[in-house]
Design a protein around this nucleic acid. Sequence first.
DNA 1: CAGTATCCTGAACGATACTG
DNA 2: CAGTATCGTTCAGGATACTG
Lengths: 151, 151
Amino acid sequence: MPKTSHATSGCAIARGLDLLGERWTGMIVRDALRGIDRFADFVAELGIAQDVLTKRLNALVAAGVMERIPYQEDGSRMRYRYALTPTGRQLATALASIGDWAAAHLPVDGGSTSHFVEAATGQRVRAALVTDDGRIVAPVDAQLVVPSAGS
Amino acid sequence: MPKTSHATSGCAIARGLDLLGERWTGMIVRDALRGIDRFADFVAELGIAQDVLTKRLNALVAAGVMERIPYQEDGSRMRYRYALTPTGRQLATALASIGDWAAAHLPVDGGSTSHFVEAATGQRVRAALVTDDGRIVAPVDAQLVVPSAGS
DNA sequence: CAGTATCCTGAACGATACTG
DNA sequence: CAGTATCGTTCAGGATACTG
């Protein structure tokens, strides 16, 4: 049981954490959401070792989060770029909520303010808990229910 | 710089991932949201080694996510329980979005359906991106803006 | 504390393109 | 057709973290 112990756990949170909790995975997805898509650019942005990046990208491709797309600049040889799939793009909510939380509760002096906006309007968007009928619920009023233990 | 390389990064997402990305931290917070608060119960639920749990709990206390509260059952010696602070409870949004995403995109046969509900009504709540005026935005229509580059 | 697994650093390797 | 540069990947090591 070396690394990801709860990978096939019945708990969805555990499975999601296994992916995002991998050392670099979250940062890769974050950069991909910024538009980064080339191997060399990920290396430059993250300072990640290349073989580790290879492993992480392969894992993300295997998980259906990213896809490997061949391209060729006119004079050059064939290269690959790595783009988020629709599935991967949906991680925006998760990363936004993590970022919002950290910005509010893990402040740092020169705190940057990277944030998500609605593409069409430029309006700032934040992660929130909403009911199926669109009502916003404060995190404090939310409760985690696990099916294993009754009620 | 062994483990958490981007801990003091200007990017809030990086700081948040440094915490939740730690091998066990997210699972500990998840169990805390379920009401677990005793050292032995965390060990039993997670199968984590005790010294590692100690380190993680200390880190969470240092980050202001959990607090260490003394208690004493009548015949017994002084013990400590670990409870989420208000700051820590706000991680519910992040964990809910991770769980929602994994449930939808990382399916597994006997997939459990742990989920968040509004405590008062029992209504299911999900993580979503909302504008400041309460409009819900699809993740696909969201865009990550980093202050470093213009705009 | 002992044994094992994982990670990171640095370097080497095949593959492709441009050069002369 | 060699000679060189770049890219993406893989290999070898030392350090670190986890489990029991």
